[in-house]
Design a protein around this nucleic acid. Structure first.
Lengths: 318, 318
DNA sequence: TTGAAAGCGCTAACAA
DNA sequence: TTGTTAGCGCTTTCAA
């Protein structure tokens, strides 16, 4: 009956008294609405798909947790796929999202220019939200300000007197990887410093023990490092421990991307952090507006990093 | 039309020629089946829910990845929720799984005896697969052999001459936490050794820097450690580095649960590993059998750990 | 404000 | 082997 449906969905045009009666009856009978029937009739699955390149990246793990919570409040179920950067898994995930009738998707794939991915996204039947990727499609987008972030980190170290800073970021073929090296170089020049050696792991999960050890074993080794906050960070700490280099006495350290590891390390590690709740709110607001047809123009926002100053940096002794 | 449906679903009773014609036409028209309609009519969502206590645990991250892949091959979409051990999130997740008509769920919640959880599971409308939890319900189950695992680890260290071994496991209120301490004690006695000090973090993600440092700062410190392979492991490595204790020269180390960190650490860390593909196959086989109504009795299996001997253990000097 | 009726897009049962 | 028909459980539309 129509009234029952309206009562259960808090729709207008039902007498308060009727609504309560319906809801009480539903409770007593243990009524469970059938999601498939609702989706079929209303043409809305109330499902939102997420495609992240890497679930081991603390940013994505934390983000997914918050986003799932937030969207659950709005009655949506969040579905996640981690592609481990594999192209075919990303294509498969997008296809599945299309088949299963996601109401929207949030994506940060490992391949941002692949023509097949782009084509799948172009004809994707629901709104798309892109997270810090330069994918050539019309879609709502939130990008991170990697240039400002590097200014913050390099500036902080320069102010402490560091002149030789070792960056350790992967050169993955997506926006963050592509921008960070350029941003680092620009920030160094901006601080009147000259970029020197660098370590560039293939992926954010590639071990960097050897490379970091090599870079720090020369005569005038860098006095500070800026290190990606993924697997690269434990791997770097491993190398520092083996070299008997203490943080911050012997070398200063900044992590790009905050994590439990950085926060709880002894000493705590200074980190570039994204405001996760702002991130989640922006995604949620945009996605819901799109789903409800309230959004008009494509939205492009930039989110800055904050520098969480902790105990891993100190004045350079050099 | 029935024939079209049968052709698309590879159902029997369709002429090969017809099937091909239908499939070609579907391809040319870009036909996308409607998942909601299919779910409504066939009473099967082809959705499988997973509830894990902690997505930051490398076991669950890796397991979810493999399981998602494997179930995708069978045409199922896997939905994951990480509760961070929070009771209300676990209850909410189970309710959502019920509302959304999961065809089955795979669970390893952080609360295994909570009456509300048990009640929700008792009246859950689909098959349940329980992973290493002692939940008092009738359900297919796979548990890990924590006693054999500790025998392996303690035995290995005892054979190397270690007599004082420091265990670092959380005493979380679920099966693994509950069993590991008892298993460790039993293994020690079995090896003719006496259990001594131990570190018991609240959760697998609680930092243990202070506690480990304290335990290793006494006069005759343990010569070996067995450490949970979650956040406890980086936290322990942090403490060892600060104490200038080298692995394995000064102290031997075994991780309970394998991870990228253990494998890629220098030196690589000996670890108790679960055979993940066996794990995934057991879950997949059981869950599919249940969904297809082929399973009869409740299945209970035990999965052993293997000791991956790497470079982090050596003969005790004491 | 409520009830009645139609129909979302499939698949299962049945008839041809 | 194929076509026809009914109906899954909701929401939406329309009429009362």
């Amino acid at each position: 009956m129509g009234t029952a449906s309206r009562a259960m969905n808090e729709a207008p045009g039902v007498m308060e008294q009727t609504r309560e009666a319906v809801q009480r009856a539903a409770r007593e009978l243990g009524y469970q609405p059938n999601a498939a029937a609702r989706a079929l009739r209303s043409r809305s699955s109330r499902l939102i798909g997420c495609l992240f390149s890497d679930l081991e990246n603390p940013l994505y793990t934390r983000l997914f947790n918050s986003l799932q919570d937030r969207l659950a409040d709005e009655g949506f179920v969040t579905l996640i796929t981690a592609s481990a950067g594999k192209l075919d898994r990303e294509k498969q995930a997008i296809s599945i999202f299309a088949e299963r009738g996601m109401d929207a998707i949030v994506i940060a794939p490992g391949h941002q220019q692949d023509p097949e991915i782009v084509q799948l996204l172009e004809k994707f039947p629901a709104p798309i939200f892109v997270l810090d990727r330069d994918i050539p499609i019309q879609a709502d987008r939130l990008v991170f300000d990697h240039f400002a972030a590097m200014d913050l980190a390099v500036g902080h170290l320069a102010k402490l007197g560091h002149r030789s800073i070792l960056p350790v970021f992967s050169h993955q073929n997506t926006r963050p990887g592509l921008m960070r090296h350029a941003a680092f170089d620009a920030a160094m020049r901006g601080a009147g410093l000259t970029p020197g050696a660098r370590v560039e792991p293939e992926t954010p999960n590639t071990p960097v023990f050897r490379e970091v050890q090599a870079a720090l074993s020369c005569d005038d080794r860098p006095t500070a490092m800026i290190v990606q906050g993924t697997h690269v960070l434990p791997s770097t700490l491993n190398a520092l421990a083996n070299l008997r280099l203490r943080v911050p006495e012997d070398i200063s350290l900044i992590a790009v991307g905050d994590s439990a590891l950085a926060e709880e390390h002894v000493p705590p590690i200074t980190a570039l952090r994204l405001d996760r709740s702002a991130l989640v709110e922006e995604i949620t607001a945009r996605v819901l507006a799109r789903i409800r047809g309230q959004a008009t123009e494509v939205s492009e926002k930039v989110l800055g990093y904050q520098l969480m100053e902790r105990a891993s940096c100190r004045r350079s002794i050099a």
